[in-house]
């Protein structure tokens, strides 16, 4: 295994962590807001509040880890992605900022203003959409050279690409699916029957659109990026496994085994996420950047990995403490 591969694997792990934790968070915000509109808020509010309060910064840190690590291990990405993504990523920052601060204002500051809750819900679905432009652009075909030899984002191509839109769609539905599945489990631990029924239904509702858009993307990739499509075909068994996990999770949901059902949802996404990542090897950005030509020097790479290991040894026990005290602490969850 080369050091480049270790580097990208660590980053991919952070990104996956972010996708899962953030999906739960974004989806929870969305459900919280949409139930205000449908006047079912009293059912889900306590469950969501209990879960969200202690973990929101942790979600944000995963994202920061990912891109700081990206620039650390692959500094050239700063030039390519930094130059072309100014607008989409700035929009994401602004939305993240509004969401994070107004959440804090609403929770730690003044109690329950409807405006905050709605804002929290709306930004929660817009952020995945704007962040996913980074992924879309990395598939190639959306960057063009300027007259002065620089590079810029081809907005016309981006906005008219069905491929781009289907990735946006996938990000939205999978956020709601992952979140509903987790919250169903969480409300079952909290013994909150009303919330449980609701979230179980949401999980069912969002499960099929997730699978259908995912399939759609694979088919479109055939035209958009044939190389990557070939790569995915050669890993077909991983995608099949992912599908099996999906079916299994639904079966477990039916059997009312919510914890396991959520675990299989995570496995489903993990398999697909890694299969997708491996199949695009070695490209970070088609066709300009690979993990090899954008890699930092070896000394820095080893320094980063060392820092990472030590940092992790510090973090694991602290995260365990949070987990014990808040997330999986039955008296705490049920007090709500």
């Amino acid at each position: 295994m080369t050091i480049e591969i270790i580097g990208i694997s660590v980053l991919w792990l952070f990104l996956f962590g972010y996708v899962i934790v953030a999906s739960i968070d974004f989806g929870a915000g969305f459900f919280n807001a949409s139930t205000i509109v449908t006047k079912k808020n009293h059912i889900v509010n306590t469950v969501i509040q209990r879960y969200l309060s202690p973990v929101w910064e942790i979600t944000n840190v995963f994202l920061v880890f990912f891109f700081v690590g990206m620039i650390g291990f692959f500094p050239k990405t700063a030039y390519y992605f930094g130059t072309v993504l100014l607008i989409p990523i700035s929009i994401s920052i602004i939305l993240l900022a509004l969401r994070g601060s107004y959440y804090a204002f609403g929770t730690y500051g003044t109690k329950g203003h409807k405006g905050y809750t709605i804002m929290y819900g709306v930004t929660g679905v817009l952020i995945p959409a704007s962040l996913s432009t980074a992924l879309i652009v990395s598939q190639g075909g959306f960057i063009r050279e300027t007259a002065t030899g620089g590079i810029e984002l081809d907005y016309a191509a981006l906005f008219t690409s069905p491929f781009a839109w289907s990735i946006v769609l996938l990000s939205l539905v999978s956020v709601l699916f992952i979140s509903a599945s987790f919250l169903a489990y969480y409300s079952s631990v909290a013994k909150d029957q009303g919330a449980l029924t609701l979230f179980r239904r949401y999980t069912w509702i969002w499960s099929f659109p997730t699978i259908i858009t995912a399939l759609g993307i694979m088919i479109e990739l055939r035209w958009h990026n044939p190389d990557h499509y070939q790569g995915m075909l050669s890993l077909w068994w991983l995608f099949v496994l992912s599908f099996v996990c999906f079916v299994w999770s639904l079966w477990l949901l039916k059997k009312r085994s919510y914890g396991w059902s959520f675990i299989f949802v995570v496995l489903q996404f993990a398999l697909a996420f890694y299969a997708y990542g491996v199949s695009r090897y070695p490209y970070l950005l088609y066709p300009n950047l690979t993990i090899y030509d954008s890699f930092t020097n070896e000394t820095m790479a080893y320094a980063l990995i060392t820092a990472f290991i030590f940092g992790f040894m510090l973090l694991i026990p602290s995260l365990y403490l949070v987990f014990k005290l808040f997330i999986m602490n039955k008296p705490y969850i049920q007090k709500g």
Partner: peptide, 16 residues
């Protein structure tokens, strides 16, 4: 990259 990376760790630690 090293201090930038470690800043994130330090902050994470504090936030927890």
């Amino acid at each position: 990259a090293l201090p930038l990376f470690m800043e994130t760790f330090a902050f994470f630690f504090e936030a927890i």
